[in-house]
Simulated assay, not measured.
Amino acid sequence: MTGTVSGTRVPTGVGIRSIGVCLPEREVTNAQLVERFDTSDAWMRERLGITGRRTAGPDEFTSDLALGAFEDACKRAAVDPASVDLLICCTFTPDHMSPAVATLVLRKAQVHGVPGFDVNAGGCAGGLFALDVGHKYVESGQYGRVAVVVADTVSRLNDPDDRTQHAIFGDGAACYLLERCTGSPGIGRTLLGTDPERYFTAYIERVAGEGRLNRFSGTNVTRMDGRGVKDFALSVLPGFVDEVVGAAGVTLDELRLIVTHQANPTLVREVVRRLGQPADKAVIVADRYGNTSGSSVVIALAEAERTGRLTPGDKVLLLGFGAGMSYGGTVVHWCGGENFPQREW
């Protein structure tokens, strides 16, 4: 899409004005896991590339992390949370089955008169599926400023006896703040995919309690075929990435960074290698935070921007994949403050 400024046609689009992040303070180190499980620090470092992960405290819920990320995004953009026109929350670990976590975030933020709803994109692919939802609402012109929060307390679903899950998963939240941008295409076309034949590669099983017949009651436990996830990532994603960059009209070599879902650092590095790209294009945060599900790609994107690895005008590939198996990708032209026009009230 293009607009006209002083007779000159300039690109316009939907851009990411800011990203907020909220991580629990509580860290679970490799040493702590060694005390609980038959594992070793060397195994976690060498096989997974993880040295620590953050997990929510007993009184810390998905809505609390979501609120922190939302408020951080607004603060970084220097806007009032009440100025948001729509709030979308992507999660599969809601505080309650109903109403939406987005409603609780608005309540805790004391924001009124703003609609909010949840989407469940099946976990780790949520950072791309939810971005596409928010993008389309801004692109349609129906809403001018949309907050897209991706948040989960996924560690609470760990199988108590599965050392690998405890080593991999952490909790966290991140928030895209989306607005119209000028002078840049902003977020490109997002491609999405789902392979239902791999449904049971990674899923959450509800284990009914004793005497419970209601399928909505019981304990939720993660079930994951780690080898299956790896095989999917290495066999499907390279071809899919070719489709994404082709749809964006760019080449892999033009990309400043490749920001993928943080399944684990070892797999992230291997995906980038299989794409034929230099290792320094990868952004790694799971070594310190663990796999935070859908928010992981957003947290990694935020770190790239905050550490100066991503500057206005750069092109960055965002790639999410996870349970389902579902996957999504887009190329984002990174915007700066000058790309967002003054909002009229």
Rank of each mutant, 00 (worst) to 15 (best):
G3E: 15
V5Q: 15
G7F: 11
P11V: 12
V14C: 15
I16Q: 00
P24N: 05
E27W: 15
E27P: 06
V28E: 07
V28P: 03
L33S: 09
R36V: 09
A42Y: 08
W43T: 06
R45C: 13
E46S: 01
R47F: 01
I50P: 12
A56I: 12
A56G: 00
S63W: 13
D64P: 03
D72P: 06
K75E: 14
A77K: 00
P81Q: 03
S83V: 14
I88Q: 01
C90K: 12
M97H: 11
P99G: 13
P99R: 15
L104P: 04
V105E: 11
R107A: 00
A109I: 07
P115V: 04
P115E: 05
G116F: 00
D118H: 10
A121E: 04
G122M: 04
G122A: 05
C124A: 13
G127P: 02
G127T: 11
A130L: 08
L131H: 07
G134L: 10
G144N: 11
R145N: 10
V149Y: 12
D152Q: 06
D162L: 11
R163H: 10
T164G: 15
T164M: 11
T164K: 01
Q165F: 09
G170L: 01
G172D: 02
A173L: 08
C175V: 02
E179Y: 07
R180V: 08
I187A: 15
G188W: 01
G188S: 02
T190F: 05
L191I: 09
L192F: 05
G193L: 03
P196E: 03
A202H: 07
R206E: 04
V207N: 12
G209W: 06
E210W: 04
R212C: 09
L213A: 08
R215G: 05
S217W: 00
T219P: 08
G226V: 03
R227M: 12
K230G: 02
D231V: 14
S235R: 15
L237C: 02
G239V: 12
G239W: 14
G239R: 13
V244M: 09
A247L: 07
G249R: 02
V250I: 12
V250W: 03
L257D: 07
I258S: 07
Q262M: 03
N264S: 09
P265W: 14
R273M: 00
R273E: 09
G276I: 13
V283N: 13
V285M: 08
D287I: 13
G294F: 07
S296H: 01
L301C: 01
A302Q: 00
A304C: 02
A304H: 12
L310M: 06
P312E: 00
P312K: 08
D314K: 05
V316G: 15
V316N: 02
G320Y: 05
G324C: 05
Y327W: 13
T330G: 14
V332L: 11
H333N: 11
E338M: 05
P341R: 08
Q342F: 02
